[in-house]
Simulated assay, not measured.
Amino acid sequence: MTPLVVRAEPQAASLSQALLAAGHQPVTSPLLSFVEGAELERLPALLGGLSPRDYVIAVSVQAVHFADNALKQQGHGWPKANYIAVGDATGKAFARVDVPGAAIPEDPRSEGIISLPGLQQLTGRRVVILRGNGGRHLIAPTLMQRGALVDYCEVYRRCYYQDSSGTLVKNWQSQEVDSIIITSGGLLHHIVKLAADSARDWLLSRILIVPSIRVVQEARELGFTRVINADGASNQALIAALDERKWNDRQD
């Protein structure tokens, strides 16, 4: 198959190499990059006030990466607290910066985080949520209802590639892209935005590989009809979903 890879580097290159090894012909076109967030200077003060009873929640690998860099640059370390990672990759990112044992919910969505047993009774406890710009706003209101004192800290920003000329989509069409691998709702909405009206039907007819049921629902609302849930954003999960589709196509 000829899947389109749009996730940020270096993950895009890693996924593309794995796709090649699996017998696919990927088209690599990263649409997203990350830069430092607007609130990094606040981070040492926010984390410095935490006790071992409090919580730090990281919503992505980028959140851990940018937060750790900022702490090191300002001469600080990670405090003793309870850590929560959204997904296995984020948990591994915590371990790489010497924060082992982060709790990882089975459901890598906001709903999975707020269902963790330790977050049910939070009266008087503090929670710092490390995130990028935008995103969902379910975690903080729910935890505040349970008595927590919650602070968001924007430690990184998402920057989406813009293409007013429509050249990107034309290139994808000329390279006969037959499937698209999407790893977030933000990327899904951005790629639809990039497609001009003349290319919208082409885009919506591609096979779409997504990481979760939430993104499946968003894709269907946007008009995609051939959507496969990979149940994860790892290379292994994404390629397994694409290979399953390739095998099924051969059987039709």
Rank of each mutant, 00 (worst) to 15 (best):
Q121P: 01
R157F: 12
E176M: 15
T167D: 13
V97R: 14
L116H: 10
T167Y: 14
Y160L: 15
P100D: 01
L119S: 08
G112V: 14
V97N: 01
T90D: 12
L143M: 13
I114H: 12
V97E: 10
K80R: 08
A85Y: 06
P117C: 02
Q162T: 08
G185T: 07
Y83W: 05
L168M: 15
P105I: 13
R158G: 06
G101P: 13
V192F: 03
G101M: 09
G118D: 06
Q173C: 09
Y83R: 03
I181P: 03
L188I: 02
V128R: 11
W172D: 11
Q145L: 11
Q121T: 10
K92A: 10
P108D: 10
Q162L: 04
Q73C: 01
L168W: 12
G124I: 09
Q120I: 01
D163S: 03
R125K: 12
G132F: 09
G87A: 03
E111Y: 05
A102D: 05
R109K: 12
A85R: 03
I180Q: 13
T142G: 10
D163W: 14
K80Y: 02
G77I: 00
L122H: 10
D163M: 12
M144V: 12
V99F: 06
V192Y: 04
M144F: 00
A102Q: 08
P79E: 09
V169K: 03
S115E: 13
I104M: 06
T183N: 02
Q73T: 02
G185Y: 09
A85P: 05
R136V: 01
S174D: 11
H137N: 11
L122Q: 04
R131M: 02
D178G: 13
V99C: 02
S115F: 08
V177D: 13
I182T: 04
H190I: 02
R126M: 10
I104A: 06
V97T: 03
D107N: 15
S164Y: 15
L187N: 10
P141C: 00
G186C: 04
S115G: 03
S174I: 06
S174K: 11
G185D: 03
A81W: 06
W172E: 10
D88T: 04
W78G: 01
P108T: 08
G87I: 07
D107V: 02
L188D: 04
I191P: 02
R96V: 02
I114N: 05
T183P: 07
L119H: 11
A148W: 07
P141K: 05
I104D: 07
G186V: 07
I129M: 09
H189T: 11
Q175V: 04
V177Y: 12
D178R: 09
P108F: 14
R131V: 00
I104S: 01
E176V: 13
R125C: 02
I180K: 09
S110R: 06
R136H: 08
I191S: 08
R109D: 01
R146A: 04
D88V: 03
P105W: 15
V127I: 15
G91V: 04
Q120W: 04
H76E: 07
C159I: 15
K92P: 00
I182D: 03
K92T: 00
R158Y: 14
Q175Y: 05
H76I: 00
V192W: 02
H189A: 11
D107I: 04
C153P: 11
Y152G: 10
G186P: 07
V169T: 13
V155D: 12
T142C: 09
G124K: 14
R146N: 09
I181C: 11
I129W: 12
A103Y: 05
R136F: 08
A81H: 03
